[in-house]
Structures are given as structure tokens and as C-alpha cells.
Nucleic acid binder design. Sequence first.
DNA 1: GACTAGTCTTAAACTATGTTATTTTTTTAC
DNA 2: GTAAAAAAATAACATAGTTTAAGACTAGTC
Lengths: 189, 189
Amino acid sequence: MNCPQILENIQNHISLSTSEKKLFVSYLKVNDVSKKERILQQGDICKAIFFVESGSLRAYNFNDEGKDSTIMFAVQDWWITDMNAFVNQKESLLSIELIEDSRIVELRFSALEEIYQKIPKFERFFRILFQNAYVREQLRVLDNISYSTEDRYYRFVEKYPQVVQKVTQKQIASYLGVTPEFLSKVKNK
Amino acid sequence: MNCPQILENIQNHISLSTSEKKLFVSYLKVNDVSKKERILQQGDICKAIFFVESGSLRAYNFNDEGKDSTIMFAVQDWWITDMNAFVNQKESLLSIELIEDSRIVELRFSALEEIYQKIPKFERFFRILFQNAYVREQLRVLDNISYSTEDRYYRFVEKYPQVVQKVTQKQIASYLGVTPEFLSKVKNK
DNA sequence: GACTAGTCTTAAACTATGTTATTTTTTTAC
DNA sequence: GTAAAAAAATAACATAGTTTAAGACTAGTC
């Protein structure tokens, strides 16, 4: 296992020696997963965090009334999991499904705990990763509470053009929190 | 300067030696700030992150149409800043105002950079802080896109009873992203 | 190449939320 | 303690978003 892509992602923020790289990579598992498969099922314990080498995924919640709400999309070089369920090792609120055939790197909870101990620099890497994730979500909350649906749609398209190419309009609607019918109306008015 | 409260908050997650505590505390500045004052003004560079020793604050954005959107409240033992503006040292999208007279500990950007270098354990502390913040915001996004206003109001009240005691209904409405008139209707129906 | 299932569009009727304005209640400032 | 200011409640009307249902348009499967 070589994993140059995830190592490059990490080395954007911290630098690793050859032996550290080797150790880190030994904890990883690479999987080829097909379109429509799920790598996490709502209700299950979330045992891993995932890095997308290629392809695309969608994390969503399915509620009692049958409403599907997209929490995030992930494309190449993104990390994704149900972070709440992962860090507390409890039942997941989210499912994660494949939008297309993808190559996914898996890092398990217990492995990450060991990595933090053996290579403390990873605390820094994940500090930066979570810092960015927090900022992103906070900006999304601001979008949600202060912009109209129309504005939010166009802001989404501008911010994530790589995502827009891969997902359906129905999935974008579920990310924005509106019905596909209403999004269609907004776009075509 | 003694600062037992912020040290206790930190030592919930990492342990510090006496000399590390002393060094860390030397970077802090404690301010007593009065109700209605602002410790951060939208448009200004965000130079510090704040820890609330006592009192309460509100971070909000004021947009072109005059709409006030509350991004977060902070009460005793919470950290608050415009994280996007802070970590990138750029213009703030948010203002932070005092809800009541408060004692605020200030940690400046350049100080935090030095702390990360001198006491790498702080990478771990902030990794955990941001991890929790990310999880919180992600759950809030899910609330925003999948629940009704009524449900979100009661979920907010249940989750943050300490906040509810201190803020106006108008401020809660601006946190939920609805008008005060509508929140009043929802509550009293 | 035709069948199928899923997506997208459109529209009418309905519900949720916003706007404006007025009154009542609570808080703040002297 | 009183006057002024802000917050909260209420209501009539306007706009945003949902529901349901139907038809047009893909994309995937044999």
C-alpha cells in the first residue's frame, strides 16, 4: 500500500518523516466501492473516518417522516464520516452512500487513537482539519438562516462546482432543505 | 493574573505542568466588559479568541438588507470568536456584543501561534475544541434543514436552557432564522 | 432498441412564514 | 417612581415553500 494521495493531503499541513509515513499508512485500508453502496448505515456504530481518493459520496439523514436531508457531499481529497458518531463511538445519525464508483481510504477509530499517541503531529493535522470544517459549517448555518433559497442555490453552485457536476438536483434540494419541486421552480422562474 | 477557570476548562482535555500553566497564562488578558459593548466589530480584523469567565455574549451578522442573524451565543466557560476571520486573520463577518456585564479572557492570534509552538499539547486541546464545535454546527445544520420552526425552537430550549434564561425572544428568533413575530405566533398557538 | 425506474418540470391547492401596523407588556434610564 | 424605549403579542394581508398529481425526459437494464 502506497497511498500518495492521502499523504499529500496531510503534508499540506504537517511534514512527516519516511518512517512516520510508513507507520501511518500501515493503519489505513483502501477499498474500491461501487455506486449506490453504503459505507455507513444510519443506526450503526461509526467505526471509521473516510478519505476519498477518487469518486464521490453523500452523507444524509433519513427521518421518521421519510425526509432525506443531505449533510454533506464529499469528492476527491475530502474527508467524510458522521463525526458525532465517530468521535463518541456511538450510533450514527447519518448514512453515507456512493454517488459513483469510488476508491475510499478507511481509518478506524482505534487506529486514529494510536496515531495520536505515536505521532502527536497528527493532533495538529486534525486540529486544522476540524478548524476548517467548523468554519465551513458555521458559514453554512449563516447561509441557512440569512439567505433565500434562490441565493443559497447559486451560492452553493459557485462554491462547489465540482460537486454540482456529479449530483442530481434532488440531492441539491435535500442539501438546501427544500423539496425538489420547489428548487425546480426557483431555477426556472 | 491567576485564571483558574480557563485552566480548568483546558485541563478537562489535557494536563499541564505548573510552568506550562504559568507560560500559558502570561499570554492572556482579562477584561471586564459592560453590557451592550462590542468586543468584535463586523468588518474589522479579528485579532483574538475569547473565553467567557462570567456573563454572556452573542455573535451575529448584519446583512445588506438589515437582517440580524445570530450565529452563536456564549455563556460561562464557552469560547467564542469569528473563527473564519480569526484563523485567516481577515475581516470579520460577525460582530460580538455583550448580553450582560461579563468577564472575558482574550487570547490573541499571535499569542496562540506561539503557544502551539512552545506547548504542542495545545494542538490537542484545540483539536478537541474544534472537533466538538464542528459536531455542534453539523447538528445545527441538520436541525435547520430537517425540522420545522416549532420543533427547532423547543429543541433549542432543551439543549441550551442556560442561554434561554439570558436572551430575548427576538434574539432566539434571529438564531433560528425566523422573524420575532412568527416565533411569537409559534409559541403561543 | 424497448422497457423500466428514477428524475425533472409544471401547476393548483394548501400551509408556513414574512410584512406591516397597532396594542400591550416589560425593561431601561434618569 | 416615572418617562421613554424596547420587546412581545396580535391580526390582516402578502410571499415562500409544500403537497399532490400528471406528463416529459433521461439513464440503466435486458
